[in-house]
Amino acid sequence: MSVAERERQSRSSPPRRTRQRAPDNKAALAFLGPWLAGAVVLTLGPILASLYLAFTDYNLLQDASWVGAENFERMLTDGRLHQSLFVTFAYVAISVPGQLLVALGLALVLDRGLRGRAIYRSAFYLPSLLGASVAIAVLWRLVFGGSGLFNGLLGLVGIQSTTSWIGDPDTALGTIILLHVWTFGSPMVIFLAGLRQIPGELYEAAASDGAGPWRRFLAITLPLLTPIIFFNLVLAVINSFQSFTQAFIVSGGSGGPSDSLLFYTLYLYQEGFSSFRMGYASALAWLLVLIIGAFTAINFWLSKHWVHYDN
């Protein structure tokens, strides 16, 4: 049967066409159903519900009552919210570049045909698998506690210290940033993949033109790697804004010492589940969505000026 014939036939009998297509649709829907149900009931539903709750006073035990923009007005004068924003921004501003630099540096070293690269790669990736876990956060308490491993190491090089690094408001955030930087594995693996994409003849050509290693890095590696850097940057910014577990475990859920570990999500959790201000917590969640959205948008806008795509 030629195409023209088929065309003619189908045109001449439109009812049959619908009959033919309907079962296909049903099957597709049936396969899609579980996911669709999950997306609507478990994701979209709660998202919409939280948008509604953001404009209410809701304590979990009584009905939510509409209060308009009151929750958002309260944010302007909420000192702990401002503290949590400060902590979170400081964390993002230091830990994201820190982690990416370490990841890029190690990727460059590992890309140089080192013997046993697979082993190194796995070893360096390990912290990424563990870093977000509760166990490592607990370990961090032991390392940076007053009688912890870190002070023990300082003692070995002759510095006597009994400071609790996680108990002092000036250093507690630093230990969490260090923990985050330590989990450089996944950006490193992505950088490695990006480095392998760079054609070797470019380096050869540059070398024969007399470019040294540093020049080759600046003129070839870095520009060609910018899409990868951009990708890692966007992911890292989004992830670090949502950081919760480490601060929760290290501070025992309090955000202390003296609110120095009061991450945004931790404050949100406290408001919702400890103080039972679910309406305010929902409003906080939406503010976080706006903040992350804004940062991602800025990232994409800025990318026009520094990210080079091949084609």
């Binding site: 308490r141 506690g145 007053g146 009994t162 400071t163 609790s164 996680i166 108990g167 002092d168 408001p169 501070s251 025992g252 859920g253 309090s254 202390g256 010492p257 003296s258």
Partner: peptide
């Protein structure tokens, strides 16, 4: 104990 030791041990 010092403030930092106290803070560290508050939630143990």
């Amino acid at each position: 104990p010092s403030a930092s030791t106290t803070a560290e041990t508050l939630t143990l």
